[in-house]
Design a protein around this nucleic acid. Structure first.
Lengths: 162, 162
DNA sequence: GTAATAACCTACTAAATTAGTCGGGTAAAT
DNA sequence: ATTTACCCGACTAATTTAGTAGGTTATTAC
C-alpha cells in the first residue's frame, strides 16, 4: 500500500484543473504556481494521467490540459491508480503468493482493507470535491495568492510582518 | 500513508502469537520459521511492540513472547501504529501545513481517508482474526509445514517433484 | 518565417525508507 | 557453566520518491 505525495499531488492537480476548467486549457505552470508542485514533476504525472485518458492536452501558446470528461465521471481512485500502480494493501498484489508461494496468514485481511480503501475513493468524484466548502475556501485563498504573484507570496508577507 | 511489510509482518507475527498462545511463550524463532520472517527483523518489530505494551517477554530457555492482554482487546490498528508511526494518509500528519504553511487543496480528503482506514482497522481484533476460516486454514497448513521442518519445506518438495 | 509558448520525452540524481544483516550483549533455566 | 532466547545498536543493499536537467515537437502570435 502506498499513498504518497505522488498520488496526493495527482489528485490535487486534477482538482485544480476541475476548479479552473471554465477558463479554457490550464497550463502546468499555472498549476505549479497555485499548488506549489514542481513543474517537471507535474509533467511526469500528467504523462501518466493522459495515458490513462483522464486528461487531454492542447499544445502551443494558450495550451494546457483539460479534463477528458465531466467532473462527475472522474473519481479519486482512478487518479491515484493512474500514478501509483494501485492502492493495494497486500504485498503480493492479490496473487496470494505472499509467503514464498503460499497465502500468508494475513492475506485476506489486507484484501479486505484494499477493498475498503478502493470503495471509499471510488465514491468521491472531482465534482463532489469542487462543491465542498473546505475545498472552495482553500481555492479562493490560492486564487488571491496567485494573482499577487506565486504560491509562496504569503511566506514573503509573513517575513515582512516578522 | 505507509502500510508496507513492516506493518504486515507485525500483524502476521501477532496473529501467530495469538494462534499459539495456549502453548506458553512463543519464541521469535518459531514465528520466524512458521511465517518466513527474518529473526533479526522480528526482534526489531517486537522491541516496538513491547514498548507499546502489546506483548510481554519471557527470557531464557523456553521463553518467548506472550500477548500482554486478551485476544479481544488487541486491534490491528494498534499493531500497525506500534511499528509504523501511523496509518495517516495526509502528508502533513494532520497539521494542515501541507502547502508551505497553509492547508493544501486536498487536505480534508486525506483526513477523511485516514479516519476511514483507522476506523476499519480499529474494529478488527486478533480474536476475530483467529476465528476466521481463511486464517485457520493457513494456520493449519503452517503447522504441518513447521513440523516437517521449516516454513519453506514445500519449496523443497516442489523441487523434488520437478 | 521566426519567436515564443507549452506540451512531450528521456535520463539522471539526492534523499529517504525498507528490509534486512551483523555482532555483540543480558537474563534465566537446565 | 552452558544453552536458550531476549535485547540493543550500528551498518548496509535495494528500492522508491521527489525532483532536476536538457532536450524535441506542435501551435500560436507577430
Amino acid at each position: 500500500m502506498r499513498l504518497t505525495t505522488k498520488g496526493r499531488y495527482a489528485v490535487t492537480a486534477m482538482l485544480d484543473l476541475a476548479l479552473h476548467s471554465d477558463q479554457g486549457p490550464v497550463s502546468l505552470s499555472d498549476i505549479s504556481n497555485r499548488q506549489g508542485i514542481s513543474l517537471s514533476y507535474l509533467e511526469q504525472l500528467f504523462s501518466k494521467l493522459r495515458k490513462k485518458l483522464l486528461v487531454t492536452s492542447v499544445r502551443g501558446p494558450g495550451g494546457g490540459y483539460r479534463l477528458s470528461r465531466s467532473n462527475e465521471d472522474i473519481f479519486v481512485a482512478q487518479i491515484v491508480d493512474a500514478v501509483n500502480e494501485s492502492v493495494d494493501a497486500t504485498g503480493c498484489k492479490g496473487r496470494s503468493d505472499c509467503q514464498s508461494g503460499n497465502t500468508c496468514l494475513t492475506h485476506h485481511l489486507w484484501c479486505d482493507l484494499s477493498d475498503q480503501i478502493h470503495d471509499f475513493l471510488s465514491q468521491i468524484s472531482l465534482a463532489q470535491l469542487v462543491s465542498r466548502n473546505d475545498v472552495r475556501q482553500v481555492a479562493d485563498r490560492q486564487n488571491i495568492e496567485s494573482r499577487q504573484g506565486g504560491a509562496d507570496s504569503h511566506m514573503i508577507s509573513a517575513a515582512i510582518i516578522d
